[in-house]
Design a binder for these strands. Structure first.
Length: 569
RNA sequence: GGGCGCGUAGCUCAGUUCGGAUAGAGCAUCGGACUUCUAAUCCGAUGGCCGGGGGUUCAAAUCCCCUCGCGCCCGCCA
């Protein structure tokens, strides 16, 4: 509802400014501080010459009708404040129990969101966990904000890493490898990958090393020549690993609409086509026998090599072909990438421009998650697997539930499902709540901290709302006029923010806003709950309506974060 | 060395795009509230030269310049 109120406030303010001859000023709408009872404020008066307090008065007088959601418009010092009307609270209460809440207008824009796209070399580790969690939450936010969203996973099935894996699976004897740590294909495959890397580093003798190098080179050449057998072998290896990775992603609640394989662009000739077009660019030059693009006019000092001396393609060239394909299928392309891809992303933008695509992908870059003693590496085996993290999180949740339900005489409805919801939710929330570019050092104690305002705090509020609704037979009465205490008003106003927060989070591609919002909403509910009894109170029916609205809003916010909302815990 | 990012309370983080009302939370510490709809809760206290310096502005955590610390990148790898 705040979304609508802001829109009305903006329109009326704009009109007033226009009439006063200040039409070119920016509105400067902002959230007032907590102790001011306005829903929206404007600092526009500062931009006008003279005393801002008098200017605010003048503007306020000029606003005649700010819509039904606004009660009064007041100048408070230099600020023009819009105070919400009874209608605003009433409509919030009614709208918030609808399944569609928060309802935002449909947008005629299709977004292709690519995220995760992990190398198929082994199990996903915590270092990369930010990618699917940020990506999946963003997809949910964008959909809720009215966009049509297609989530895509780009499968890397070309190049030396996958050739190495394929070779290892075909040539290494399983008996010589360490036991598999977990019965999942990605955990199986990574043993081969690690051994292959040892061999390539010469740890198993020079002869072994050379033989492996030769055979991997031959496989790579076969792939480039479009040899069917080579592609089938690689596809088989990649699918096995991807299968296992997707199991973990499913546990994380991350889902994908489509999978695109890198090899498609090699096989259908579009990569060659891109290289040909880049060759026409005046900035193209011979770098030895290879071909490169000089992008210094774009402020990029590093040249973009797009064709190797042996004629084969490179990752970035394939990525250009992929993005040309993406832009045929969408209006906007959004990518979630590790910060190490920043330079490559700039080169991609410049190259897309060079081949005539004016659009650029919008990218969310995230810093990697490190361990206290260094970075995670699949090749070296210095990782915490997502599977292990989730197991541990769920196990911890199970123990907490047992311990706490033992303290009271109420049973948790579905302990297994609830433990999974709480454990996985804690992990997702912990990751999504932070700005992507901030670095994270992974510590078990912190990732699995169930105290404080994290996922379980918000989930608990949801369970609490469910409990209250179960305890009452009274029919809810949607009458905001009887919900006037400070706690009730605060809670209603938090609920009213949801649509606005979703809109902003979508606009800024910042799903972490929803995490901040969800804990504020939960806090507002807890304050209400402590101060105002619902069942058997004089305004039981009205408060039940508020509880219902809270429940639905919290469930929506959690859903946007990919966190489940348990009915009891 | 160059480019990009990060630096806010003892710890973990919001707030920085687009400058506006007294810089906010959680954890930790200290004190208070359960014969009560789920105490995974609530109320209160303590704690900040927003890395440092300079500048712009009526107004700076936010913009500009310099500087220090940390991370990432600077492959005919992906």
């Amino acid at each position: 509802m705040l979304y609508s109120l802001r829109r009305d406030a903006a329109t009326s303010l704009e009109d007033a400014l226009e009439r006063l001859g200040y039409g070119d000023l920016s509105l400067q709408l902002e959230d007032p501080p907590e102790d001011v009872d306005a829903a929206v404020a404007s600092a526009v008066a500062f931009q006008i010459d003279g005393d801002p307090t008098e200017n605010a008065e003048e503007i306020t007088k000029e606003i005649d009708d700010a819509g039904e959601l606004v009660d009064t418009v007041e100048a408070q010092g230099p600020y023009v404040n819009f105070l919400p009307s009874q209608r605003y609270h009433q409509e919030t209460l009614e709208a918030a129990v609808e399944d569609s809440y928060p309802l935002l207008p449909e947008r005629d824009e299709e977004i292709l969101l690519e995220h995760t796209s992990a190398n198929p070399t082994g199990p996903l580790h915590v270092g990369r966990a930010r990618n699917p969690i940020i990506g999946d939450s963003l997809a949910r936010v964008l959909r809720q904000a009215g966009y049509t969203v297609e989530v895509e996973y780009y499968v890397n099935d070309v190049g030396r890493q996958v050739a190495t894996i394929t070779w290892a699976l075909e040539n290494l004897d399983e008996g010589s490898l360490p036991d598999v740590e977990r019965e999942k294909p990605d955990h199986d495959v990574v043993r081969y990958y690690r051994r292959a890397n040892e061999i390539l580093e010469g740890e198993h003798g020079e002869e072994e090393k050379e033989r492996a190098e030769d055979e991997i080179d031959r496989l790579l050449q076969g792939l480039e020549d479009g040899e069917k057998a080579a592609h089938e072998a690689v596809t088989d290896a990649v699918e096995r690993c991807l299968d296992g990775q997707l199991k973990s992603l499913e546990r994380l609640n991350a889902s994908y609409d489509s999978f695109v394989r890198e090899s498609e662009f090699v096989l259908d000739g579009s990569v060659d086509d891109v290289a040909d077009r880049l060759e026409e660019d005046p900035r193209c030059y011979d770098e030895g026998d290879a071909l490169a693009l000089d992008l210094s006019d774009e402020g990029i000092d590093k040249e973009l090599v797009f064709r190797r001396a042996d004629g084969t393609s490179l990752y970035t060239t394939r990525d250009i072909a992929y993005h040309l394909d993406k832009f045929e299928r969408c209006d906007r392309a959004v990518n979630v990438l590790g910060e190490d891809h920043k330079l490559q992303a700039r080169q991609l933008d410049a190259a897309l421009d060079a081949v005539g695509e004016e659009r650029s992908p919008e990218t969310i870059f995230y810093s990697y998650v490190n361990l206290p003693d260094g970075k995670m590496s699949t090749r070296e085996g210095t990782v915490v697997d997502i599977d292990d993290l989730l197991d541990e999180a769920v196990e911890r949740a199970r123990r907490e539930i047992e311990e706490r339900s033992g303290d009271r005489d109420r049973d948790v409805d579905a302990p297994e499902e609830t433990a999974a919801a709480v454990g996985v939710g804690a992990v997702r929330f912990d990751v999504v709540a932070r700005q992507p570019e901030k670095p994270i050092t992974f510590r078990w104690e912190e990732a699995l901290d169930f105290d404080g305002q994290h996922a379980p705090y918000v989930q608990y509020v949801h369970a609490r709302t469910a409990g209250i609704l179960e305890n009452s037979d009274v029919e809810p009465e949607f009458d905001a006029a009887r919900l006037t205490s400070a706690e009730e008003r605060m809670l209603l106003e938090k609920i009213a923010r949801l649509s606005y927060e979703v809109d902003e989070a979508a606009e800024e591609l910042a799903p972490h806003r929803i995490a901040s919002y969800s804990r504020e909403l939960a806090e507002a509910f807890n304050e209400f709950y402590r101060e105002r009894r619902v069942v058997d109170s004089e305004v039981e029916a009205e408060r039940l309506a508020l509880v219902e609205a809270s429940k639905n809003s919290i469930a929506s916010a959690l859903d946007l974060l990919g966190v489940e909302a348990p009915e009891s815990m």
